[in-house]
């Protein structure tokens, strides 16, 4: 099977976010693979191990993203592709990213494409379905279970807490929800092997993409931090009195009961 996983490099979830000159400060920040993309990579590896084939991980980013691709290779992916947009594009949005990924994938005959359901930084959740639509293939989002039998696919997906069982077929794009699997940690031999696995670096020119065709449709005009929430009141006294006071405050002061 020809399997692709879409991987985004993102801030570690432990990081506090700081803004300077209207931009997120990324000096010194730790970066990780977007957590949902780890589920996508893990599932891709399991599907390959069960059905044969090859897993290719793809990212759009700059050279820094090589590290996350190597991690995916160390987990067990076979090949990696970095589409480096650093020199070509100043502004990107979900339209841009999806279009570049779809241009790369259009002649690859992918059987299965896995993505995260959302990136924990950009947070739009658009890229997966957009890519599927551009490729003209079906997609299922926020999946928690995947079974493949030949070209038949049975999926369980999370729908705001309820679960839906879906029957469909390959080729298909799915987006991973938490609970899909337990992503493995790269093993030491895995890390050694990953150093020798192919990592292809491409630019827009290599994909015959003209910058104008992927020009962003939306524009970020400001980035800012939410107002710091002042610490509130920790109540004091007898627990029973505290509870009385709390309910009173919620009722009269906060007016939320």
């Amino acid at each position: 099977m020809n399997i692709y996983a879409l991987v985004k490099r993102t801030f570690d979830t432990e990081e506090k976010i700081a803004v300077s000159n209207g931009k997120i400060v990324d000096d010194g920040a730790e970066f990780i693979i977007n957590p949902y993309d780890e589920y996508a990579i893990e599932e891709a590896i399991q599907v390959r191990d069960a059905n044969g084939g090859e897993v290719t991980v793809i990212t759009i980013g700059d050279e820094e993203a090589e590290k996350q691709l190597r991690t995916a290779l160390a987990m067990g992916a076979d090949k990696a592709v970095l589409i480096n947009t650093e020199d070509d594009l100043d502004e990107m949005d979900e339209f841009t990213v999806a279009k570049i990924i779809a241009e790369y994938l259009k002649d690859k005959d992918a059987d299965l494409i896995l993505a995260g359901n959302v990136a924990i930084d950009g947070g739009s959740g658009q890229v997966g379905p957009r890519v599927a639509e551009l490729l003209g293939i079906n997609y299922v989002t926020t999946i928690t279970n995947l079974e493949i039998d030949g070209t038949s696919v049975k999926i369980v997906r999370d729908v705001e807490g309820d679960s839906e069982t879906i029957e469909t077929s390959l080729p298909l794009l799915v987006t991973a929800q938490q609970g899909l699997n337990e992503p493995r940690y790269p093993s030491l031999p895995g890390i050694m092997k990953a150093k020798k696995k192919p990592l292809e670096e491409l630019e827009l020119d290599d994909l015959d993409i003209d910058e104008d065709d992927v020009e962003a449709k939306t524009e970020t005009i400001e980035i800012y931090l939410p107002p710091q929430k002042a610490a509130g009141r920790v109540l004091e006294g007898d627990i029973a009195d505290q509870v009385k006071e709390l309910v009173e405050l919620l009722n009269k002061e906060a007016k939320v009961l």
Partner: peptide, 23 residues
């Protein structure tokens, strides 16, 4: 921006080659 809206909006935006400001 519900489960349904998240699933459908990028498909429509892609069909219409439009931007989409989510959430």
């Amino acid at each position: 921006h519900t489960s349904q809206g998240k699933d459908l909006s990028p498909k429509i935006a892609s069909k219409l080659a439009s931007g989409l400001i989510s959430d």
